[in-house]
């Protein structure tokens, strides 16, 4: 066997640089990703908020975690879109005929998804602060929130990668994110699940968004998190690992 030099990390950073250029060159995509959840937040807080019975806190405090998840679900759609384009335009093929670490092309997109979603999350949190959102979480609490959101982003990004890499059309690549954006509505993101009819409540209580939303909400309000945190982490890690395996397979098969 001969020794072949590959530079997986430097290749990956070159690819990340490329993806980040894509993202910053299309500020409209960042804005679109952030605007929809922000509009929803305004709508729910200022229009429906008065009628929402969510205990005695501010409604914006209650709502923010779900809005962040919707923003991320919305944001990973662009990763699917960019992966699909790279596959369709033969960009991946070009990289594959070069002495470039095979994984770099995929990881560049995944890391840039993390960066761009982090930007969106920060923007939305700032808007929420303007709307009166306050958190009593300490540094550790915020760190834990960041950790959960990063895991959630990775899990959805790998799902997006499956969609982008196996889709036959652009519409197919993007369509996968619609149900993801919808999931928070049937969860504890907007209203407590207790008020829902029993069938819906059963679904809402056991789907991943609820445990993630509840954990983030508890952390932000400085309340004890309890076992929901472990359920949330298990969901994120489980989805991430399974989606990762399928995404890598799709990458090897389709590019």
């Amino acid at each position: 066997m001969n020794v072949t030099r590959t530079h997986p990390f430097s290749d990956m950073f070159v690819m990340l640089g490329r993806s980040m250029r894509h993202i910053f060159r299309s500020m409209d995509t960042i804005i679109t990703v952030a605007v929809m959840p922000i509009a929803m937040m305004l709508l729910f807080v200022y229009v429906f908020g008065g009628a929402m019975q969510v205990g005695n806190g501010r409604y914006v405090d209650y709502l923010l975690p779900g809005i962040l998840l919707i923003a991320i679900a919305n944001g990973v759609g662009y990763t699917a879109y960019r992966l699909f384009l790279d596959k369709q335009r033969g960009i991946f093929e070009r990289f594959r005929s070069m002495p470039v670490a095979r994984s770099a092309g995929l990881w560049g997109h995944v890391l840039s998804s993390l960066v761009s979603n982090a930007i969106t999350v920060v923007v939305i949190v700032l808007v929420a602060l303007l709307m009166g959102f306050r958190s009593s979480a300490g540094a550790l609490g915020w760190l834990a929130v960041a950790g959960i959101l990063i895991l959630f982003t990775l899990a959805l990004t790998w799902l997006a990668a499956i969609a982008g890499l196996s889709a036959k059309s652009m519409d197919g690549a993007i369509a996968f994110s619609y149900p993801l954006v919808f999931l928070p509505f049937i969860s504890s993101a907007f209203v407590p699940t207790e008020t829902m009819p029993s069938v819906v409540r059963a679904f809402a209580q056991y789907q991943p968004v609820t445990s993630i939303v509840n954990s983030v909400r508890a952390l932000l309000s400085g309340n004890p998190v309890g076992s929901e945190l472990w359920i949330a982490l298990a969901w994120c890690l489980g989805i991430m690992i399974v989606a990762y395996l399928f995404a890598v397979r799709a990458y090897q098969k389709n590019t």
Binding site: G90, E93, R94
Partner: peptide, 23 residues
């Protein structure tokens, strides 16, 4: 047998232009 070494020696311009439109 040794695709990596082949990749080091070659370059491909495919039938359909593969440039990055955003860059």
């Amino acid at each position: 047998v040794d695709p990596d070494r082949v990749r080091r020696a070659i370059s491909l311009t495919g039938q359909f232009t593969a440039v990055d439109d955003v860059l």
